[in-house]
């Protein structure tokens, strides 16, 4: 099994769900209004989405904007912390990689470019 969202119907906090739709590397991924990009991707069963220097997958680690493991490109903005950015309906998310081995993926800057 993977990460998932608590079902609204049985959630003790009594909340509503307004669906939204984003695309991740062109694929449609559903979430609900108020979620972060990371929350949407996790609840959709994606655990790792960025490639590190060696090509190994990374996803959420710290969840509060400190570790920068979960960086993605949102619309035209590169290097966005997915755990801190609220998803908006229609967001176009592009996955990032620091692995030189993948041609065509959005290359991520190393710290020397910052």
């Amino acid at each position: 099994m993977s990460p998932r969202r608590v079902r609204a119907e049985t959630d003790a906090v009594g909340r509503r769900e307004r669906p939204l739709l984003i695309t991740v590397d062109g694929e449609a991924v559903g979430g609900i209004d108020g979620q972060t990009i990371a929350g949407v991707m996790l609840a959709a069963g994606r655990l790792g989405w960025r490639r590190g220097v060696s090509g190994a997958a990374r996803g959420v680690f710290c969840g509060i904007g400190v570790c920068f493991d979960c960086l993605v490109t949102v619309n035209a903005d590169r290097d966005v912390r997915a755990c801190r950015r609220r998803a908006r309906d229609g967001d176009v998310v592009t996955l990032q990689s620091r692995w030189p081995g993948i041609p065509g993926t959005a290359r991520e800057s190393g710290s020397e470019d910052r």
């Binding site: 998932r4 929350g39 969840g63």
Partner: peptide
């Protein structure tokens, strides 16, 4: 520890409290 699915305790709590996402079932 760098594998996806390894979270800090803070991440698990932030996701559960802040957006009702649980990080796993086991």
């Amino acid at each position: 520890w760098e594998l996806p699915g390894v979270f800090t305790g803070g991440a698990a709590q932030a996701l559960a409290k802040g957006e009702r996402v649980v990080v796993g079932d086991r």
